[in-house]
Computed example of a mutant assay.
Amino acid sequence: MEFQYVYNKVKNVPFISHRNAKTLYDFILKHKPAHILELGIAHGTASCYMAAALDEIGHGSLTCVDLTEMKDHFKPSIEEQLNILGLNKQVDIHRMKSGYNWFLHDAIKSNSNNPENICLPKYDLIIIDGPKNWTIDSSSFYLCDKLLNENGWIIWDDYNWTYASANKRRDATDGVTHRNLSDDELKIPHIKAIFELLVMQHPNYGNFIIQEDSDWVWANKISNSTHKKVTYQQSYSARYYLIQILRKIYKRFK
């Protein structure tokens, strides 16, 4: 399914910008991942672009994971958007009571059902867009690493997001109570800390893309990599910055 057709259908539904959506869509067309895992889906708008790209290349599957309680929170839902586009067959949706780390637990256990009792990797691309919390997402990185194929990629959203920037009218974000956090935990971007202190220092990751203005970061799994390459990407489109401002305002008041 062509990108522009999907964009015309879902362009008014958050939370992915035109630039990030097109980047993700084109990446899938180029690299043709067989299996994609998306952790944290909200309305499933990014999921629609990925499903469309898989439909365009004619193969591949997308597994989406989110909290059970979020199913009725986001309207339209991922199910509704996929149904409109006719892309339901490309996507397997899992709703978890406690979060996506328990889905990862189950996946690792299932993929370890072999004589060697070693987890066999499955996914070529993983997108992590959940609580944005050091405790939760540092664990999710190591769990995802066990499930990511060599030469696969992981993407994180909300690279610069902080609890301090969250809507002051709410006491918690994704189940994390703000008043229970220290000053550093409130002010420091958790995904950025995970990326710099864990991902970039990991011996199996060697290619990194930092998209500061779009709040996305990428890491490429290359076993025992001794060469670390970091690419910084910037967009200077006024339209893009306007979309990002509106996106942040929407997140504060959702």
Rank of each mutant, 00 (worst) to 15 (best):
N83F: 11
I78C: 10
H59D: 09
V217R: 03
G130T: 08
K146L: 11
K187Y: 07
Y100W: 00
I249E: 10
D55C: 14
G175I: 00
L148G: 02
A21L: 08
K30Q: 10
K109R: 12
T231N: 14
A172Y: 12
A53P: 02
P203T: 04
G40W: 01
L29Q: 04
Y240K: 05
L125R: 01
L37R: 04
I41T: 09
R247E: 03
A21K: 04
L147G: 01
W102P: 12
I108M: 12
Y7G: 08
M50W: 02
D215R: 06
K192W: 09
F141Y: 07
F27N: 08
A42P: 00
E116W: 05
T135H: 15
T45R: 05
S17A: 07
E150W: 07
F141P: 03
K32S: 06
K221A: 00
I210K: 06
D157M: 08
Y232P: 00
E38G: 07
G44Q: 05
D184N: 12
Y25F: 05
K32V: 08
I36Q: 06
S61L: 11
K97M: 10
K75T: 15
K9W: 06
A51F: 08
D213F: 08
W102D: 15
S98Y: 15
D55T: 14
D158H: 02
S98K: 15
A42V: 09
D55L: 12
N220H: 13
N167T: 05
D174C: 13
N133W: 05
S140R: 07
Q201T: 14
L62S: 06
A42H: 08
I154N: 01
Y25D: 07
E212H: 14
F15W: 13
I243R: 14
K109P: 10
T173H: 15
Y100Q: 07
A52W: 05
A52I: 04
V65Q: 01
H105L: 15
I136V: 13
A53R: 01
K228C: 01
I127K: 01
L148Q: 00
G58Q: 04
L125N: 07
L246G: 12
W218L: 08
K132N: 12
P131N: 13
L67C: 10
T226A: 13
F27T: 09
K89L: 04
I93S: 03
D124L: 03
M96T: 09
S225L: 02
I16Y: 05
G99S: 01
I108C: 11
N160K: 14
N101L: 13
W153L: 05
N114D: 01
K97H: 04
